[in-house]
């Protein structure tokens, strides 16, 4: 199976999911291409396009939280960072993703 064709298919499906959530693919096209390629490899191995920057555990319920696009499961963090963990998706208003900060996965402090 052709990696490029699968990347295009994932791009097609992901765009439909993230757009109503207020996200888009990062303008950093090199990062997008690399991340999608890693997801294709993960999908070939596990049958699921997991987030390429998160550890796959033995727990199915935990693994389901890192199936790309994982925005709904980590909405609070992503909205605060205006990006997802790996940077594949950013808020629609982001034009320069290099200026965005990353927060650790621990619960965010309020206030």
């Amino acid at each position: 199976m052709n990696v490029q064709a699968r990347k295009e298919a994932l791009r097609y499906f992901f765009r439909k999911v993230v757009d109503p959530l207020g996200y888009k693919f990062s303008p950093d096209t090199e990062l997008v291409e690399f991340s999608l390629e890693q997801e294709v490899a993960l999908e070939r191995k596990y049958g699921v396009p997991y987030c390429p920057c998160k550890r796959i555990s033995g727990s199915r319920s935990e693994n389901m939280k890192i199936v790309c696009p994982c925005i709904p499961y980590h909405r609070e963090h992503f909205d605060a960072m205006k990006r997802c963990w790996c940077g594949l998706f950013v808020h629609k208003d982001v034009t320069d993703p290099s200026k965005l900060k990353q927060f650790p996965a621990q619960p965010l402090k309020k206030g």
């Binding site: 199976m1 064709a5 699968r6 070939r44 049958g47």
Partner: peptide, 17 residues
């Protein structure tokens, strides 16, 4: 499993693999 109807190309295999 997924296929591209324009070409018949297999895009992905079954789940689980």
């Amino acid at each position: 499993a997924q296929f591209d109807i324009r070409t018949g190309e297999a895009l992905s295999g079954p789940v689980p693999p």
